[in-house]
Write a protein that binds this DNA or RNA. Structure first.
Lengths: 351, 351
DNA sequence: CTGAAAGCGCTAACAA
DNA sequence: TTGTTAGCGCTTTCAG
C-alpha cells in the first residue's frame, strides 16, 4: 500500500525480513501468542521499534481482532456520557483497546440502528450501547455476533450484558425529597417514547412510573403531572413552559435528566420566577456541571465512571475470556441536595 | 467469516451468485462505478436488498475507501464540540460517510498522537483534528498520507486544511467589552502550554496575547494578569481561586473558554462574591449552555456548526475530488452580552 | 520453537 | 459491458 507521499507503510513482512524471521513469528510476538522463545521476542521487538511498525487494524480485522471497542452514544452533548466514557477508557486502555464513538441520535431507532451497523461493519471487537431505544430483539441480533454491553436498559437479556443504575430507587429519592420539603404539586419531565409502545425497558419509563407510584403512595395522585418531551435542554425548556402556563402551577419539578433540568431552570427564570423560591427543581445524573455554584442543581447521583469502567470490564471478559453468559450490573444512586430545592413558598411563608 | 451464532456474514460473492453475476459487477454497483447497465444495476440491487448485504468496511479498507472520517476531540466534555460535530455529520452523511470519534486527551501530545495513529491504523479516509497541541510537523506527517483538516490552529500548512475563528478579533471583543463597562483590573485565564515553547499556533496563545495587547493599548499594562491552567472547569476554578486571593482582586475575568468560565463562576460564588456585582466574567465559544438563565454567561460566539460543516466539505473535496492544495477557512466571531458582565462596583456606586 | 502457505472480503487491472 | 484474477496485511492451520 502506497501512501500519498509515496512512502510504503511498514508492514509485518518488512519487520520479518529486517529481523530475519518469518511473518508468522512477528505475528506471534505481536499477539503475545504461545510458543515464542525469548530470543525471538527480543529480536522481533527490536525490529518493530526500529522500523516504527504499527499493526494495520483493517488487515487484522479480516482475520483476527481489531482491538477496538465501539461506543454508541445518543449524542455527545450530555456531560454525563463523558463520565461514563472516562471510566470505559481507563478500563480498556490497559488491555490495548481503543474506544471509537459514534453518535446514535436521540429517539430515532433508525439512526441508532445505522450507528450500530457502522460499528459492526468496521469489525469492532465489542460494542457498548448507551441508553438505546431500539427493540431488544434488534440489540440481541447484534449481540449474537459481537460482544455487547448495554447501559441503561431494564429489560433482561441472555445475550448481552447490562449496566444500569436502580432508576426506581433514584426516582424515589428525588420525589421523596421534594415531598419531604413539603411539596405537593410536583411535576415530572419525561422523554417521549420513540415507538408506539411504552416499554418498561427504558429508564425514562421507570423514572416516570416510579414518580407516579410515589406520588400515589403519598396521596398525591391528583397532582400527578407528566410532560413527555425529551431528556435535552430543549425538551426541559418546552415541558416547563407548558407546566408553568397551567392554572395550577407546580411548586416543584422532577426532571428525568440533568439536561432537561437545565432547560427547566431557563424556562422558570424566563417566566420571571425564581429557583427555588417559586419552583424547586431536581435533576438526574449528577453530571459535574450540576455542582457549579450558578446552577447548584439538586440531582440524583449515579456513578458514571464506575458504570463505564464496568462496561469495559464486561466487554473484555467476553472478548478475551470468551464468557457468553449474560451479566447484569446495577449501581445504587444517591441524592445530592443543592440549592435548587427548598420548601415551597406557602410553607416558607408560614414560618 | 463465521459469526458467533454460526451464521456467515453475507459477502459480496453471496450477492454475486444470488444475482448470477460476478463479484466485480456487484462491487461496481456498490461504488456507482462507471460501466454498468441499468439491467445489471437493478438485478444486483435486488439481490443486495434481498440478502440484506452490507459492505464489510474492514475488507474495503484493504484496497479502497472505508467511507469513514476520523475525528480527534480533546475530550467530549466540552459542549462546543457537540456543535462542531453536528455540522460535520450533517455535511458528510449525505455522501455516505460515517464519523467516528476518538478522545485525544487535553494537553498531552503523546496521547493525542496515539489517537491520531489509532485512526490512521483503522484506515479512515480523512481525519479531522480539533484543537491539537501536537507540533505542526507531526500533524503534517499524518496529513501527507491521509486527508486532514485541523480546527483551531493558527499556523499555516501547505499540507492540511485549516478551519478556525479569528481569535484575535474574538479576544479583542471580550476585552474591549469589559473595558467599555469601566473595568481596569481585568484578568485572563489561559491554558498552560503543553510543550517547552509557546507557539502562536495555539488559539490560547492568540487569545492571551491579544488580551495583553488590548490592555496595553488602553494603558492598562500594569493590570495585566494571566493565569495559565487549562480550558476546563477545574482549570477555571483553580485560576480564579488564585486570582481572588490576590491583594488587588480583579473586577473582571476574561476566560479563554466557556468551560473555564464555568469554573470561574463556581469559584467566585464559593468565595462569597457575586457575579456580576463583584466580578464580571466573559467566556469564549458561546456553547449553548451559556445561554441558560442560571448561567447567562457573556461569551464570544464562533459558529461551531458552520466550522464543522466546512471541515466536512473540505475533507470530502480532498477525498472525492482529490484536491491537494491547502485551504484556510476563517469565521469572524461576535460578542453575545448576557448577565455575567456589568460595570464594576465602584462605578455602579458612583451613579 | 519456527516457517510456509492459504485465505479473510473486497477492489482494480486486465481480458474477453 | 462483463468476468477473471491477483493481491491488500494479517492470522492461522499445519508441517518441519
Amino acid at each position: 500500500m502506497v501512501t500519498r507521499d509515496g512512502r510504503r507503510r511498514v508492514t509485518i513482512s518488512d519487520v520479518a525480513s529486517h529481523a530475519q524471521v518469518s511473518t508468522t513469528a512477528v505475528s506471534k510476538v505481536l499477539r503475545n501468542a504461545y510458543g515464542v522463545s525469548e530470543a525471538m521476542r527480543a529480536k522481533v521487538q527490536a525490529a518493530i521499534d526500529e522500523l516504527g511498525y504499527r499493526p494495520h487494524a483493517a488487515a487484522r480485522a479480516m482475520r483476527g481482532r481489531t482491538f477496538t471497542i465501539g461506543v454508541v452514544l445518543p449524542h455527545i452533548r450530555n456531560p454525563f456520557f463523558a463520565d461514563i466514557l472516562d471510566g470505559l477508557d481507563e478500563q480498556i486502555a490497559g488491555a490495548g483497546y481503543q474506544a471509537i464513538i459514534v453518535q446514535g441520535g436521540t429517539m430515532d431507532p433508525g439512526s441508532e440502528g445505522r450507528a450500530i451497523d457502522a460499528l459492526v461493519d468496521r469489525q469492532v471487537d465489542g460494542i457498548f450501547i448507551v441508553a438505546p431505544v431500539l427493540a431488544r430483539s434488534r440489540l440481541e441480533e447484534t449481540a449474537r455476533s459481537t460482544p455487547t454491553v448495554v447501559l441503561g436498559r431494564h429489560d433482561r437479556s441472555a445475550v448481552y450484558d447490562s449496566v444500569l443504575d436502580d432508576d426506581e430507587v433514584g426516582a424515589e429519592l428525588a420525589v421523596e425529597h421534594l415531598i419531604a420539603l413539603g411539596h405537593r404539586r410536583i411535576a415530572h419531565i419525561s422523554q417521549k417514547d420513540s415507538g408506539p409502545s411504552r416499554s418498561v425497558a427504558w429508564l425514562h419509563t421507570i423514572r416516570a412510573r416510579t414518580y407516579e407510584r410515589v406520588m400515589a403512595e403519598h396521596g398525591l395522585a391528583e397532582h400527578v403531572a407528566v410532560v413527555a418531551t425529551s431528556y435535552t435542554e430543549e425538551g426541559g425548556y418546552q415541558a416547563t413552559s407548558e407546566l408553568l402556563a397551567r392554572s395550577l402551577r407546580p411548586s416543584a419539578i422532577f426532571a428525568g435528566a440533568d439536561q432537561a433540568a437545565f432547560g427547566a431552570l431557563a424556562a422558570i427564570h424566563e417566566a420571571g420566577l425564581t429557583v427555588p423560591g417559586d419552583v424547586s427543581v431536581v435533576g438526574y445524573d449528577n453530571a459535574r456541571v450540576t455542582a457549579l455554584a450558578h446552577i447548584s442543581l439538586t440531582s440524583v447521583d449515579q456513578d458514571g465512571a464506575i458504570m463505564g469502567k464496568t462496561a469495559g470490564r464486561l466487554l473484555l471478559e467476553r472478548i478475551i475470556e470468551g464468557r457468553t453468559s449474560a451479566v447484569r450490573f446495577s449501581v445504587t444512586p444517591t441524592l445530592v441536595a443543592r440549592r435548587s430545592t427548598a420548601p415551597p413558598r406557602a410553607i416558607t411563608d408560614q414560618k
